[in-house]
Nucleic acid binder design. Structure first.
Length: 115
DNA sequence: AATCTGACGGGCA
DNA sequence: GTGCCCGCCAGAT
């Protein structure tokens, strides 16, 4: 697929991001890059992050962290600690803004979710 | 129109 | 493990 550079494509991309985010099982987390990869945009991790900037209600944005398991987006929550709180409430342990056992709670849409 | 920034990722020293 | 650089694309100024 050649690069499609119109608004329609980005709108779909944002929608897809929200859909995938909603599918993240409770007690699991995923990364921006994983979602981008699942959507076919290899280097769209930043776009996923930007999509979360306007995440509608019902989208568990707190379950999306960066590839290192860091809660890089916590500063966008009010209060910022609410992200960690939400994760801990679901059984995910967070220490020093980092998800403990990230490899085990990691949920890869491309692998666990079938197209 | 040009430039900078950003809830990122991967590669390399 | 840590730090720096580059690529990536959409908004904001």
């Amino acid at each position: 697929m050649a690069r499609i550079k119109n608004r329609h494509f980005t709108d779909n991309f944002f929608q897809n991001v929200y859909e995938v985010a909603k599918l993240i099982p409770k007690g699991r987390v995923t990364s921006y890059g994983a979602i981008a990869n699942y959507l076919g945009v290899r280097s769209g991790a930043r776009m996923v992050g930007w999509a979360m900037h306007g995440c509608p209600r019902g989208v568990p944005a707190h379950r999306v962290v960066n590839s290192a398991g860091l809660l890089t987006g916590k500063h966008h929550f009010k209060p910022p600690v609410s992200m960690q709180k939400a994760l801990e409430r679901e059984g995910i342990k967070v220490k020093n803004d980092r998800v403990v056992d990230f490899d085990k709670v990691f949920w890869d849409p491309s692998r666990e979710l079938l197209p």
